[in-house]
Simulated assay, not measured.
Amino acid sequence: MLNCQRDLFSIPRDTAYLDAAYMSPIPIAAVAAGEAGVRVKAEPWKMTIASYYDEVEEARQLAASMVGADADDIAIVAATSYGMAIAAANLPVPTGSAILLMENEHTSHRYIWYDLAQRSGAHVDIVPQPADGDWTNAIVSAIRNSSRPIAVVAGTLVHWFEGMAIDLETVAAAARAAGASLVVDGTQWVGAVPFDVRRVRPDFLVFATYKFLLGPYRLAFLYADRRWHEAGRTLEHHSWNRVGGDKSDFYKVAVPDFLPGARRFDMGERSDFAVLPIAIAAMKLIRGWTVESVFGRLRHLNELVWSQAESRGLPVARPRHPTPHISILDIGDRLAASAAQELKRAGVHVTLRGTKMRVSPHVYNDEADINRLFESLPLR
């Protein structure tokens, strides 16, 4: 099993940071890379045209390796919501059809579909949270039993709020059988859970870097199925996603062709000299550990979370379909009203929403962090 990597991060020993699903810290090496990147803009006379391309392509390749894709399949975008807007700009949604969403889906993967439905004369149909926790069966049943033709299934591997796992391969098969497009939000798991996009084959998959990829804020990657590589509609038009943008006479060609693959979807000013190096350094670490090894460590730590809760007699019930890298414990009325403030004072960081506590460790956590959480947890 992968050992704790705490020494690669600037995390004090008296801090138990267990909130990667909110925002992860970035590794020390990534901080250094970002600082070097800032200095590029401080001395623009030293820049060459390679400054706009080399790191872009390195980041694209690394991002592709996280999901089993090819570099040509990946676009560099600003956020999950940006990638979802690209998907919405391309997918056919006929009048009277339905866009299928899980109940309480994250806003970056929700609002755009309401907007598209309103513009297209379509409907947003919500799959209610299943009482038995089986989101996969609930989504597949909703697809098969819909009274309307399904145009889009907006899916994910793990419900961001409930921490329940979804079998995306099964959902993808049902979506294809119904003639629906599949759009996936990977922000809450890419980098932490092994995934092969070739097995699921979504139309689009978007994942931001600031959570389990240990990267910067304001950066995401978009996977686009090859059916969208030749005719996909981009949100922005600029030189960097066009052929010849690296030439001194780029402005002479009226409308040059797009660069190959998903590069047509790249955002403007994609080669952010401070942001991209952070993502590259962080993804290099993950590639060195391997996603499989990261997953194994997180599964071990989350098993400790559940074991500690149960051994202390907390009224928690493990979900029937848990995601192994995040634990969401409903502690009910045992959780003190002042829990959030008291945990922070104790140097413990988790997400609390009502009676639910979301614990999301990463490779910088160890067994002592889990112990600290439960020793500091204020209960009634």
Rank of each mutant, 00 (worst) to 15 (best):
R176L: 06
W189S: 08
V255N: 15
D7V: 07
D167T: 11
N371G: 01
L314W: 10
T170I: 12
T170K: 15
F221Q: 01
T323W: 13
G96N: 08
E105D: 10
K247S: 10
K247I: 03
R39K: 13
P216W: 08
I326S: 06
A63R: 01
A30I: 10
D54F: 05
R227P: 00
V152P: 00
R299Y: 04
A21S: 13
T351I: 08
R198Q: 12
R60I: 02
V67I: 15
L335C: 04
L276H: 00
M1K: 02
P260M: 12
P319R: 08
I28V: 14
C4R: 03
K211E: 01
T107I: 13
E292P: 00
A180D: 05
Y17E: 05
L343K: 05
Q129R: 14
I49S: 12
Q118K: 14
M164K: 10
A192W: 06
V197H: 03
R297I: 05
S248H: 11
G34M: 11
D266T: 02
F250E: 06
D167M: 12
A274H: 14
M102W: 04
P27L: 06
A36F: 13
A88T: 01
P322E: 11
A337M: 08
T156G: 10
A254M: 06
I328W: 03
M283L: 15
D134R: 11
R287S: 12
F258Y: 15
G121R: 13
A254C: 05
A336M: 04
M23Y: 02
P315E: 02
R299D: 09
L335R: 04
D257H: 12
H237K: 05
A30M: 12
D330L: 03
E375W: 01
L298C: 07
L116Y: 07
S81R: 14
R263S: 07
H159I: 04
D70I: 00
